[in-house]
Amino acid sequence: MASNGFMAQWVYTDIVKDHFMNPRNLWKEDEDFNPDGVGEVGSLACGDQMRVGIKVKDGKIADLRWLTYGCASAIASTSMMSEMAIGMDLKDAYNLKPEDIMAKLGGLPEHKFHCSVLGDKALRAAIDDYLEKNHMENPYKATVAKIICECMGVTDQKIETLIKEDKVKNLKDLQDITGAGTVCGKCVPRLEELIVEMKHIYGKEA
């Protein structure tokens, strides 16, 4: 095709392309990988779903496998997450931020960030699962909580749990249950964002 010098860059960075083309630590069907913990977030209806399995040894992520249904950035970000997480101690792994994964990928388009970088959440779910299965205390859950509504002291994690458990479907439900956003109202736009984001992550109807 004649391009007359107008040559497009690829849709994403070269790092994303590399991970998309050659995904690392993929969970192969025929592989004998017996995970100590498994986490899954997202849904096919939302367009993104991730499953992460971890092996834990001496308080560290000894090994990790993943599966992803999703777009190129979802596949690449989960692959990148796997490289970052292996060898990390559980606390650091639990605190892995989507921003960190995105930075390692050399950036992602704005609209891709929220919907496709779910690997950190799947990893956290896998660690939760590991600790629960082994009847161990989960000292990390509280550490990653961020206060969203300062007036009522409602954290993102509280909101996450309520949505995950189908107790909250919209802003009104959230306000009724927690009072979040009912005092000064400053956090309402963020609450609405979070509700959409969490519903997406947990595959709840939009």
Binding site: V11, C46, G47, D48, Y69, C71, H111, H200
Partner: peptide, 28 residues
């Protein structure tokens, strides 16, 4: 299989198609 991934793998092979996937439209 998700549409954007299919589209981009096909693109690498020189095959240009389109998808109804949300990922390609920038919305959910």
């Amino acid at each position: 299989a998700e549409g954007e991934s299919i589209l981009l793998y096909l693109d690498m092979e020189g095959i240009e198609v389109s998808t109804g996937s949300a990922c390609a439209s920038g919305s959910l």
